[in-house]
Nucleic acid binder design. Structure first.
Length: 408
RNA sequence: GGGGAGAUGCCCGAGUGGCUAAAGGGGGCGGACUGUAAAUCCGUUGACUAAGUCUACGAUGGUUCGAAUCCAUCUCUCCCCA
């Protein structure tokens, strides 16, 4: 069987590794149990988590056993790594609720049959810890001096770090230790921002048991300019279709920068590397083919074949000028709002296409609005219910945003 | 516990009585150019009517014809000392 280490390396996942040679050897000769933790701080996973899921999937395909750990316990603390502010304290109910949603996504990518993968919640062993016991048992193995020097606290050394958050590292290390004891877990993976926490776990296991444990981190998805990817105007790029529609999701990937196409194909799809390299090498206008493949593939992974197809068709139609048939988002507008006639400004704001009338006015004056394929340049332009009758009342905002307005 | 500094629009940050809806930058949005790319250029970026009005500079009161700017109290943040 192919060594998953080479696969991960070739596709560009690996950022840091504790014991490169040993890890490579181990992964080649035996099935390895490893874990990745996910803190349910939001009610949906985002694209950053997706990379981790991909890694688990690659690992499982090569015969290793993933443990997806839901951080129901650690979320009670909040990981301060790389953050400039303290996380909001969350209630147990919300955490449990979010954890439920995570499960569904994992099941799409991992096979949990016959214990080929596990999902556990660290709330099971963290929530009932006894403070004194824990401190004597685990706390003794940590040096505050070293912790303070850790890179992940850097930003917090300027802004302030509470003792609550300072404990996070111990708990994550303890997770790894527990998984090692219970399931023989030998490796912990995570985003590169988790490096400090992962090392802490590796060292804890070595100190307490003398056993070998390893850690590896993966690149955070960044653009060629080094900016974190997956940010949209509305916040993160969510995997939940309720929060980010498949169409928006598709469009995000359709619009990535040329320079990022190959990297994204390697990290976010299962396409063979030969194909990835071929697509990434396309030049000029042709790179758009690669972007279509990328957008389609990623959307298919997350939302399924059907949704991906729909998004692709909609996008193609919308951008080829043949908008009438495109499956573009519909917004409803109450008929009484329209009355006998409605002016463009009221239309845009009432339909939620713009947040305010001022914004609508701005857009119209700046030539940013088209209705039924016609630029609207006069803010006095008005419409009557008749204009909506054929169901093709399509508003184009800027170059890329299309909305179909339907009276209700 | 003692002392000091600070809180301005989405973010950073200037502004220390009227010329301030608030410089500058970033980001966002629109336009041009294009390949639904990048870079670049232009415009725009509190709200409502279209020429004013209203709401805004941590919160609440006060001084003044007039306050982001002065005073008081409060809240929060950071720094130094213990």
């Amino acid at each position: 069987m192919e060594n998953v280490y080479d696969v991960l390396m070739e596709r560009g996942y690996i950022e840091q590794c504790t014991h490169e040679e040993e890890v490579k050897e181990m992964l080649a000769k035996e099935p390895v149990t490893f874990y990745i933790g996910f803190d349910p701080t939001a009610d949906s996973l985002h694209i950053g988590h997706f990379i981790q899921i991909m890694v688990m999937a690659h690992m499982q395909r090569c015969g290793h056993r993933p443990i997806a750990v839901i951080g129901g316990g650690t979320t009670m603390i909040g990981d301060p790594s790389g953050r400039s502010d303290m996380r909001q304290v969350m209630t147990q109910e919300r955490i449990a609720n979010n954890a439920e949603k995570f499960k569904k996504i994992f099941e799409r990518f991992l096979s949990f049959e016959d214990g080929k993968a596990l999902m556990v919640n660290n709330a099971d062993w963290i929530l009932n810890l006894n403070y004194i016991d824990f401190m004597r048992d685990i706390g003794t193995h940590f040096s505050v001096n070293r912790m303070l020097a850790a890179d992940c606290y850097k930003t917090r050394m300027e802004k302030g770090l509470t003792f609550l958050e300072f404990n996070y590292m111990l708990l994550q290390a303890y997770d790894f230790y527990m998984l090692h004891q219970k399931y023989g877990c030998k490796m912990e993976f995570g985003g590169n921002d988790q490096w400090s926490n992962i090392i802490a776990g590796v060292e804890l296991i070595r100190k307490k048991t003398g056993d070998d444990a390893y850690g590896m981190t993966f690149s955070l998805l960044t653009t060629s300019e080094g900016i974190k990817m997956g940010k949209t105007a509305k916040g993160a790029l969510w995997l939940d279709p309720e929060k980010t529609s498949p169409y928006e999701f598709y469009q995000y990937w359709r619009n990535v920068a040329d320079a990022d196409v190959e990297k994204c194909l390697a990290l976010l799809t299962f396409l063979p590397m030969d194909e990835v390299r071929r697509l990434g090498a396309l030049e000029g206008e042709k790179i758009n083919q690669a972007k279509e493949v990328l957008a389609y593939e990623v959307t298919r992974e997350i939302h399924g074949e059907e949704e991906a197809q729909k998004a692709q068709d909609a996008a193609r139609k919308a951008f080829s000028g043949n908008q009438a048939e495109a499956d573009i988002p519909t917004v409803e507008l109450a008929a009484e709002k329209v009355g006998d006639t409605i002016e463009i400004l009221a239309l845009l704001s009432d339909a939620g296409i713009t947040a305010t009338r001022s914004e609508a006015r701005r857009l119209v004056t700046q030539n940013g609005i088209a209705v039924k394929g016609q630029k609207v340049t006069d803010i006095k332009t008005a419409y009557t219910p008749k204009d909506f009758e054929d169901g093709d009342f399509i508003v184009k905002k800027g170059k890329k945003v299309y909305k179909r307005i339907v009276l209700v």
